[in-house]
Computed example of a mutant assay.
Amino acid sequence: MGKLIYAANVSLDGFLEDEQGAFDWSVPDEDVHAFWNEHERGIGTSLYGRRMYETMRVWESDDWLADAPAVVREYADIWRTGDKVVYSSSLADVSTARTTIERTFDPEAVRRLKEEAATDLSIGGAGIAAEAFRHGLVDECVLLLCPVAVGGGKPALPRGRRLALELLDHGRFANGVVYVRHAVRASA
């Protein structure tokens, strides 16, 4: 059985992106990128909302990677080998391999995915993650807290929902990013 892991780069004040939708403040340096590479190696299937999928699909192409550092090219290879499920009622089709579209988020289908998985699953995108939290599906949160406060924007964690968390691991990067990994014990 796989765990469902919510993983994200987050501003210190708890946002995935600022009020203009920018997240350039969270672009990882090589050490942080290496961390994400290692994390993603353990993921077999990624569940995305439409906007997160549209952001992530850049990894399908090598065109822009020619001059990128090896750690960045490695991430692209890792991303391409995983399965992807996109939850969208508006997306007509997908442009990446190993990707399927689901028109609605079905909590029971996600429970089955977890039960049948030989590896862990990830969930990305604030809206779809909030649904997973609401249905008690998220097992762990892996958050990289970036040394910036953006003052508002898209919250990283669902609003109006209390989560009981247990710290499993933590660390610090030279660029000031702090890593925390929590088990989700209860949601109310």
Rank of each mutant, 00 (worst) to 15 (best):
Gly2Tyr: 06
Lys3Ile: 03
Ser11Lys: 04
Leu12Asn: 02
Phe15Ser: 00
Phe15Asn: 04
Leu16Gly: 04
Glu17Pro: 02
Gln20His: 15
Gly21Ile: 00
Ala22Lys: 13
Phe23Leu: 02
Trp25Tyr: 10
Ser26Leu: 03
Asp29Phe: 04
Glu30Cys: 02
Ala34Thr: 13
Phe35Glu: 05
Phe35Met: 03
Trp36Glu: 10
Glu38Gln: 14
Glu40Trp: 04
Glu40Phe: 09
Gly42Ala: 11
Leu47Gln: 01
Arg50Gln: 12
Arg51Trp: 02
Tyr53Asp: 02
Glu54Asp: 13
Arg57Ser: 09
Ala68Leu: 07
Ala68Cys: 08
Ala68Gln: 14
Pro69Arg: 10
Ala70Tyr: 05
Val71Trp: 04
Val72Tyr: 12
Val72Trp: 10
Tyr75Cys: 03
Ala76Gln: 07
Ala76Tyr: 03
Ile78Ser: 08
Ile78Gly: 06
Trp79Phe: 12
Asp83Val: 02
Val86Arg: 05
Ser88Gly: 08
Asp93Val: 03
Arg98Pro: 01
Thr99Tyr: 04
Thr99Ile: 07
Thr104Lys: 09
Thr104Arg: 13
Phe105Pro: 01
Pro107Phe: 07
Glu108Arg: 11
Ala109Asp: 09
Val110Asp: 03
Arg111Asp: 04
Leu113Asn: 01
Leu113Tyr: 03
Ala117Ile: 01
Thr119Ala: 15
Thr119Glu: 15
Ile123Asn: 05
Gly124Leu: 03
Gly125Val: 09
Ile128Cys: 06
Glu131Arg: 14
Arg134Leu: 06
His135Arg: 11
Gly136Cys: 08
Gly136Lys: 06
Leu137Met: 11
Asp139His: 07
Glu140Gln: 14
Cys141Asp: 06
Val142Ser: 13
Leu143Phe: 11
Cys146Trp: 07
Val148Pro: 01
Val150Asp: 00
Gly151Gln: 00
Leu157Cys: 07
Leu157Gln: 05
Arg159Pro: 07
Arg161Ser: 12
Arg162His: 11
Arg162Gly: 12
Arg162Glu: 13
Leu163Trp: 06
Ala164Glu: 15
Leu165Asp: 11
Glu166Phe: 05
Leu167Arg: 13
Leu167His: 07
Asp169His: 11
His170Asp: 13
His170Lys: 12
His170Ser: 15
Gly171Pro: 08
Ala174Gly: 08
Val178Gly: 11
Val180Tyr: 13
His182Cys: 10
His182Gln: 11
Ser187Glu: 15
